[in-house]
Amino acid sequence: MSSRLATAPSPTGSARPAGRRGLLNTVLGKQPIGSAFVTPYLVFLAAIFAYPLGFAVYMSFHDYFFTAPGTVVDRPFVGFDNYVTVLTDPAVRRSFVNVGIFLLINVPLTVVLSLGLANALNAAIRWRTFFRVSYYVPYVAASVAVVGVWLFLFNENGLVNTILGPLAPSPSWLVNSSLAMPTIAIYVTWKQLGFFILLYLAALQNVSKDLYEAASMDGAGRLKSFWNVTVPGVRPATTLVVLVATVTGANLFTEPYLLTGGGGPNGASASPVLVMYQKGIEQGNPDIGSAIGVLLVIGVLLIALIERRFVSRED
Rank of each mutant, 00 (worst) to 15 (best):
R4H: 06
S10C: 04
P17N: 06
P17T: 07
A18S: 09
G19P: 08
R21Y: 08
T26Y: 08
Q31R: 05
A36H: 05
V38A: 13
T39G: 14
V43N: 00
L53T: 07
L53K: 01
F61R: 03
H62A: 05
Y64H: 02
T71N: 05
V72R: 00
V73E: 15
V73Q: 12
F77C: 07
F80P: 02
F80K: 04
N82K: 09
V84N: 09
V99M: 04
L109G: 15
L109Y: 06
S114V: 12
A120F: 15
A124F: 13
I125N: 02
R126M: 11
P138F: 02
V140A: 15
V140C: 06
A142Y: 10
V144S: 12
F152R: 03
F152G: 08
L153I: 06
E156M: 03
N157G: 12
N157K: 12
P166W: 00
A168C: 14
P171G: 11
S177V: 11
I186Q: 01
T189E: 00
G194K: 13
F195N: 03
A203D: 06
V207G: 12
E213Y: 11
M217K: 02
G219V: 11
W227F: 10
T230W: 07
V231C: 08
T238V: 06
L240M: 11
V242P: 01
N251E: 14
F253H: 04
G262E: 03
G264H: 00
G267Y: 00
V275S: 03
G284C: 10
N285K: 07
N285P: 09
N285G: 11
P286T: 07
V294E: 08
L296Q: 11
V300C: 06
L302G: 00
R308H: 13
E314Q: 13
D315A: 11
